[in-house]
């Protein structure tokens, strides 16, 4: 059974991988890199909401925090790129451990509010901290050299470095989900009391997942700081936390390719919307609104449902009607 449902996903992965490799020949590389950063960010977020059932509402803290650290190390301390990136992601992981320790004990809605509040505290900290550049942020961050050799100021070289890191990050998430550890996470998502009664230290599992998610979010933020040469308060603001939720939801919560597709759609949309300048937030809000109301499964979720229905109809035509019911599956994925 799992082999059958895995194959189309694998096909999509191969297609994405192939597109990623030739991407810079077709599309403006900086745009693609931005999409990849957010795809990684959304994948990290999805690890929590899709596979542990935790709605974290403060992931901008890890994304933006890492962007600041990496940006500062490159610009002011003049560290090499690879060390700066790693330091940024590690800083995010540390923030993740702290946030996780505080938030993991509370459930559901409270978890969302606590993570949001802690992220806001971090935001206020960034407003005042001396190394963030305050309202202006860190601008013109030098991209530096990878291992002192490869000049990253060249868009195409940077592109393949970013591509490699993002692909490894997403692979890390994928491995986590499909490992025995990931099975336990899904068990916790589906029935926490049962996981507890089976003797699992549920909070420890959640904390580890949260830390991985924070680390990968940080990786995404660090890359973003290098790609756009910019780290600002926007990166740590609650709107960014909301944006990653939207990307994941739009792509499909609890699917591996979903967040990638969601990030691509939202970033593309933002690109096209720059002409509407001041109405961008409203439009994004409306898209969010109707995604929640009528498109909760997201792109990958809907595609999977159509594919399943199609297969089912091919196997046993008369029975397909019942499985086609709206909302029969979607909420479980997210719960």
């Amino acid at each position: 059974m799992p082999r059958i449902s895995l194959n189309p996903a694998a096909a999509i992965f191969l297609a994405l991988l192939a597109f990623g490799l030739v991407g810079p020949l077709l599309v403006y590389p900086v745009f693609l890199m931005k999409v990849m950063c957010f795809a990684l960010f959304a994948s990290a977020f999805n690890l929590l909401i899709g596979y542990v059932g935790l709605l974290a509402f403060g992931h901008a803290m890890f994304f933006g925090g890492a962007a600041y650290v990496t940006g500062y190390l490159l610009k002011v301390a003049g560290w090499p790129a690879e060390v700066s990136i790693l330091a940024g992601a590690t800083a995010a992981a540390v923030l993740g451990v702290i946030t996780g320790l505080l938030a993991i004990g509370r459930q559901g809605i409270y978890f969302a509010m606590i993570t949001l509040a802690l992220a806001q505290m971090f935001f206020f900290f960034c407003v005042q901290a001396p190394f963030t550049g305050g309202e202006n942020g860190l601008t013109a961050i030098p991209r530096g050299h990878l291992f002192g050799l490869l000049d990253l100021s060249d868009d195409v070289s940077l592109y393949y470095v970013v591509f490699a890191i993002v692909a490894s990050g997403i692979f890390l998430i994928y491995r986590t989900i499909h490992s025995p550890f990931g099975q336990v996470l899904k068990g916790i998502r589906d029935n926490e009391p049962r996981a507890i009664s089976l003797g699992y230290d549920v909070n420890r599992f959640k904390l580890i997942a949260f830390t991985i998610s924070a680390f990968v979010s940080g990786l995404a933020g660090a890359l973003k700081a290098i790609v756009l040469q910019l780290a600002t308060l926007v990166d740590v603001s609650w709107t960014t936390s909301g944006e990653v939720v939207l990307m994941t939801l739009m792509g499909g919560i609890g699917t591996v390719v979903g967040p990638i597709l969601g990030a691509a759609v939202i970033i593309t949309m933002q690109n096209y919307l720059t002409g509407f300048a001041e109405w961008v937030v409203t439009i994004q809000g409306l898209v969010f609104f109707f995604t929640v109301l009528i498109f909760r499964r997201g792109i990958a979720g809907e595609a999977e449902r159509i594919y399943r229905n199609f297969r089912l109809r091919a196997v046993s035509p008369p029975r397909s009607e019942k499985t086609g019911r709206q909302d029969a599956v979607a909420p479980r994925n997210a719960a």
Binding site: L249, T282, L286, F288, V292, P331, A334
Partner: peptide, 30 residues
């Protein structure tokens, strides 16, 4: 709108009110 989501996981209700916040704030700003 909100009423349509009472049968699904309650994170969706939260997200709907969040998106409403974006719409209101974005429109006021615009």
């Amino acid at each position: 709108f909100l009423r349509r989501l009472y049968d699904v996981d309650n994170i969706y209700q939260l997200l709907l009110t969040f998106s409403l916040a974006l719409i209101i704030e974005g429109t006021l700003r615009a």
